[in-house]
Design a protein around this nucleic acid. Sequence first.
DNA 1: GGCGTTGTTGGGGA
DNA 2: TTCCCCAACAACGC
Length: 284
Amino acid sequence: MPELPEVETVRRQLAKVVCGNKITNIIVKLPRLVGGDSNALKKLIGAKFTRIDRIGKLLIFYTSVTDTYLLVHLKMTGQLIFVSGTKFSGGGHTLSEGDLMLPNKHSHIIIEMTNGVLYFNDQRTFGYMKLVNGKELKEIKLNYGIEPLTPTFTWKNFQNIFMGRKTTIKALLLNQKLVSGLGNIYVDEICFLSGVMPDRKVEEITLIEMKKLFKNTEKVMKTAIENKGTTFYSFTNADGEKGNHKDSLYVFGREGEKCFKCKQEIKKIRTAGRGTHFCSKCQV
DNA sequence: GGCGTTGTTGGGGA
DNA sequence: TTCCCCAACAACGC
């Protein structure tokens, strides 16, 4: 489940290897992932990526084609893996890390470049690649809320998103229109570190708890990026490697195990339609 | 073979 | 109008 730290990890790695190099061919094996038209990305052939941006969990590739941006969303099981050097010959690649073979049955889009090959793999095919113009990009950006680790993520802005809400803290933090980039794993972690039960109503959260949630959101994002993300199911970074943050998780995926802080058993419930992990002693 | 899994969308209800 | 909840999507593992 790529969330902000995972997508940021991919962004940083890809920016170093794809920017400035020419795209020589694009193979779309599953047209549904590019909006149904297998020729949808064709105008990028012969062009270059110039810069990679990110908003929340969405990657934005700037291109050398006028007013053209490539959006990539990994959704739940998407991977972007770049193999440098060897020219794609149809025979594919084997990465030493984890015996990863490329392409494989989940490689739905293959972008060949002068210096390597970019594979878009997606086991569950929820992800997409899509070209948009500047106007469309602007409209899309309007749908995203304040983003951790950017200047928009201020204590004042954070307090404002709580105003008049009737929902739970978990649903609020998952709402991309309010806070961009958080997903199921990190929301559970942020609530644990803040001592707040995820199913608490927003209007009952105290100012002190709110401040903890604010600080821990930044802390969790920063630490997870330093660890190059969490691999729970299928996430790999642009080198095909797993993230290192799984061992740093306090509650997510630890139901039945002991809380690292108090030894109480970690429980799992359903909140905001999502599997939700917590410690009933550390969180109120 | 049915269920659980999650990010996002949009339909319906309040 | 705006907010909130939840089904639906898709495919895989258990």
